[in-house]
């Protein structure tokens, strides 16, 4: 990739700079749903580059289309305008894997079968699957539960299974849709720490959709703030907090508070607008 770079004197230098191309390039992306009451624009005019090994968080008010955006990136939803370019994955592997919101772990499969699911679809042989999944279950602390069924596990453990299942296919891009939304705060902290640790070890590119500013700041390098209905990008906030991060240190960092304030300022009016639009009391 060639870019023109301004030198110190302010004149444009024609020297070539090689930069890493983004993993995902999104241009003019939009999604309109046809409903009985007429067309509804869920997402509109999204321009976004997702850098390799970046941890990106998307926050926005409820119903702002952030999940729709994530589902379009995942290929589960077809955009009605614009395009998504995802590059450079080997043909036999999916570009992305998603950790879904809510109960996405198959109740009829054991922990191991769930974790092996994506690999099995890809046609990986039993020994290969076992090798990969063993170490992953070790990583998420579920190796002793590999033969248990999901109903025997806690909510947090089930979400660990979902994470292991997504990581098992070694995706270039890990997508997480409100992954810890249904967990209690303490369990959420533990799992956030685990995700940070795994991210540090695997250097994956991650996009997490969340309604929690706190979670976005804890995890991400960059936070995208979305407008209320229809969803568009309102603000992009870099999070220069030092890594590796841990819950206690993060929260005592004044920068954390400053960033929180900035994002909340940006988000507040959108939340009020979203609530007014949906008729909820303020």
């Amino acid at each position: 990739m060639t870019v023109a770079v301004a030198n110190e004197s302010g004149t444009v230098d024609d020297r070539e700079v090689v930069t890493d191309p983004p993993l995902v390039r999104i241009r003019g992306l939009g999604r309109v749903f046809e409903t009985a009451a007429g067309p509804v624009t869920a997402v509109r005019a999204i321009d976004l580059d997702i850098r390799r090994r970046e941890f990106l968080a998307i926050v926005g008010p409820s119903g702002c289309g952030k999940t729709t955006l994530l589902r379009m990136i995942a290929g589960l939803e077809t955009p009605t305008s614009g395009r998504i370019e995802t590059g450079s994955a080997a043909a036999d592997r999916p570009v992305n894997a998603m950790v879904f919101q809510g109960h996405s772990v198959f109740p009829w499969m054991t922990v191991r079968q769930n974790a092996e699911y994506g690999l099995a679809i890809r046609g990986a042989g039993k020994p290969e699957r076992a090798g990969i999944v063993d170490s992953l279950l070790e990583t998420v602390g579920l190796i002793e539960f590999s033969r248990a069924y999901p109903h025997q596990l806690s909510e947090g453990m089930r979400q660990r299974v979902a994470i292991a299942r997504a990581l098992a296919v070694d995706p270039d891009l890990l997508l997480m849709d409100e992954p810890f939304g249904s967990l209690d705060e303490q369990t959420r902290f533990i799992l956030q720490d685990e995700v940070l640790r795994i991210w540090g070890e695997t250097q994956k590119t991650v996009i997490v959709v969340t309604h929690s500013i706190d979670e976005a700041l804890t995890l991400a390098d960059r936070v995208i703030v979305m407008t209320a209905h229809p969803g568009a990008i309102k603000d992009v906030v870099d999070v220069p907090l030092a890594r590796p991060r841990d819950q206690a240190t993060l929260r005592s960092d004044p920068e954390f508070g400053r960033l929180f304030g900035r994002i909340w300022d940006s988000l507040r009016s959108e939340v009020l607008e979203a609530r007014a639009a949906s008729g909820s009391p303020r």
Partner: peptide, 23 residues
């Protein structure tokens, strides 16, 4: 959501039937 999971991993209709609908 189970259908989404199967599709996300590139599962076809037969996979969907075998691993989701039937069990």
């Amino acid at each position: 959501i189970f259908t989404d999971v199967a599709r996300n991993f590139g599962g076809n209709r037969w996979t969907l039937f075998r691993t989701v609908a039937l069990p």
